[in-house]
């Protein structure tokens, strides 16, 4: 059974101007998904619907076969979802390890170590970390929170190509080794190449794309 299922979802911020139209998708655990699309095509909107930050105008989002609004969107957000943004993912008055411990259900230190941060780095001021290191901490927090779904909105948008590749690799590892359902929104084709499944939003419609 897929972890997340999008069923005939339509969304419009304003009446008559649909951003998403009749979108269907099945998103399973252990896989890295990439959602491609031009700027303004509705990627972030779709992500917010998957994450339970908003409700579709039509259709529904299911988690493990149950409508996410059944137990409340907050329940869905707290228990099933981890969000990673393009930047500002970390609380600046907490060290990296404290940032991970913010919601950790698992031991933070080994996860941080596995994602390539030294012990010294985990106790540093987060503002002294590079962009790539900051994203590693954000991914570590998602992993430590033990949520089954990781939603990332342009996580490599602020990074140089090499670092972006590293982060993409880590996201891939999160799906394959940690068994998460990782959904990455991006307009970067390099990221998409690493994904198990690539979806593209065009004029409100979501289509699987062969790379």
């Amino acid at each position: 059974m897929p972890t997340l299922e999008v069923k005939n979802v339509s969304y419009a911020y304003e009446r008559g101007k649909a951003v998403l139209q009749n979108v269907c998708a099945e998103l399973a655990t252990g896989k890295l998904y990439a959602i491609l699309g031009l700027s303004g095509s509705g990627k972030t909107t779709l992500l917010s619907l998957l994450g339970g930050l908003d409700v579709p105008t039509q259709g529904s989002v299911l988690f493990d076969g149950e409508d996410i609004s059944a137990k409340g969107l907050e329940h869905h957000r707290r228990n099933h979802i981890s969000l990673i943004f393009q930047s500002y993912n970390l609380i600046d008055y907490m060290t990296p390890i404290e940032n991970v411990r913010l919601t950790a259900k698992l031991d933070a230190a080994p996860i941080l170590e596995r994602l390539g941060l030294t012990k010294d780095e985990t106790h540093r001021n987060v503002l002294e970390l590079s962009g790539g290191q900051q994203q590693r901490v954000a991914i570590a927090r998602a992993l430590a929170s033990d949520a089954p779904v990781i939603l990332a909105d342009e996580p490599t948008g602020n990074l140089d190509t090499d670092t972006a590749d590293e982060i993409t690799a880590i996201l891939k590892e999160s799906a394959h080794a940690f068994g998460k359902c990782v959904i990455v929104v991006t307009h970067d084709r390099e990221v998409a190449k690493q994904a198990d499944v690539v979806l593209e939003i065009k004029r409100g419609h979501l289509k699987e794309k062969e790379m």
Binding site: T44, L53, L83, D153
Partner: peptide, 10 residues
């Protein structure tokens, strides 16, 4: 609003 989180964070 929760939806605004994403737009504010991007």
């Amino acid at each position: 609003n929760p939806r605004e989180i994403l737009s504010k964070m991007s």
